[in-house]
């Protein structure tokens, strides 16, 4: 992959830190930089429409995906995204047909997937290593294939968001009004759920299942405090997620830190959030702003 090598070299030149001269660090940063815009774009809708629990369910289904890989003796690299995608689409389908509340539908799928994963993994002692990776994530072992897959996902996701960002806002505010006004709500909901599932699965590899929801909601939540409009919110989310991933990776590689990358990324995003909160509080107190 000559083009990827060029990217790595560029990173090494732009970030002249000692740690960034290593190839695996360059790969990790490339992966995170691809992930950042995806979580920013998807996170805006997750936060505005309270889909955090949905993201949680998908991330935990990755666990069942790993288990499925063990049974079928297929690499979890394949079973995780496929299974996550299926769970995501199944949740949307059940939601659309069932009279149960969204939370209940998701909770049912969530627990089913986790129980299945636990049942299979408990039989295999060799699966412990996979579980570790699943819980904490491991961006440093990202491969060139992963990066290529993420590039493709980012391309598809960008097309979808450029085409459908406004319609997604519409559907999120009121599916019935959007539908009555001629928006094909079902198609958007399925495509969004599918893309979100893929993003979540890649995020599991980067930051681990414990922090994957944070990856989606913290930058968007901070953006929401900064932004005055739905358009600006996307730019703020992009800024927060991109800077957090870079800062998180750099900090985690420092001699004095030596911490898990995923955790550092989320801590950086969390700092952004606290800043945005202070900002929002100050704006609220400012007289005459009823924005």
């Amino acid at each position: 992959m000559p083009e990827l090598t060029a990217v790595y070299d560029l990173i090494a030149r732009l970030l002249p830190f000692e740690c960034m001269q290593m190839r695996f660090m360059q790969q990790a940063l490339t992966g995170l930089l691809l992930l950042a815009p995806m979580v920013a774009l998807m996170g805006v809708h997750v936060v505005n429409f309270r889909m955090a629990f949905f993201a949680d369910a998908i991330s935990h289904s990755a666990f069942a995906g790993v288990a499925l890989g063990l049974i079928l003796t297929v690499s979890p690299r394949w079973t995780m995204p496929v299974f996550g995608l299926l769970v995501g689409l199944a949740i949307v389908a059940a939601q659309r047909r069932s009279a149960l509340s969204t939370d209940t539908v998701i909770g049912v799928f969530f627990s089913g997937a986790v129980a299945f994963g636990l049942a299979v993994v408990s039989r295999e002692s060799s699966a412990a290593r996979d579980i570790q990776r699943f819980l904490y994530g491991d961006i440093l072992t990202i491969t060139a294939d992963d990066i290529r897959a993420m590039l493709a996902l980012l391309a598809g996701l960008t097309v979808f968001q450029v085409y459908g960002y406004n319609r997604m806002l519409y559907i999120g505010l009121s599916p019935s009004v959007a539908k009555a006004h001629g928006v094909r709500a079902a198609a958007y909901q399925y495509i969004y759920a599918g893309l979100l599932s893929c993003v979540v699965i890649f995020s599991v590899q980067a930051v681990g299942v414990l922090l994957v929801t944070a990856m989606l909601i913290v930058p968007a939540a901070a953006a929401r405090n900064f932004a005055r409009s739905a358009g600006a919110m996307m730019w703020w989310a992009l800024l927060v997620s991109t800077t957090s991933t870079i800062a998180g990776l750099l900090i985690s590689a420092q001699e004095w830190a030596r911490t898990a990358t995923g955790a550092c990324v989320i801590l950086a995003a969390f700092s952004w959030f606290m800043l945005s909160w202070a900002f929002a509080c100050m704006r609220c107190r400012a007289p005459g702003s009823r924005q």
């Binding site: 505005n48 406004n166 319609r167 505010l173 959007a178 739905a230 358009g231």
Partner: peptide, 29 residues
């Protein structure tokens, strides 16, 4: 509708609300 249930803290202006059904170009632009 009778009443729109939505998150009141959501940053969406009245202008954006009005045009989100007409304008294809994403609101970030």
């Amino acid at each position: 509708p009778q009443r729109l249930q939505f998150d009141r803290a959501m940053p969406l202006t009245v202008m954006e609300f009005m045009v989100m059904g007409w304008q294809r170009r994403p609101l970030w632009f």
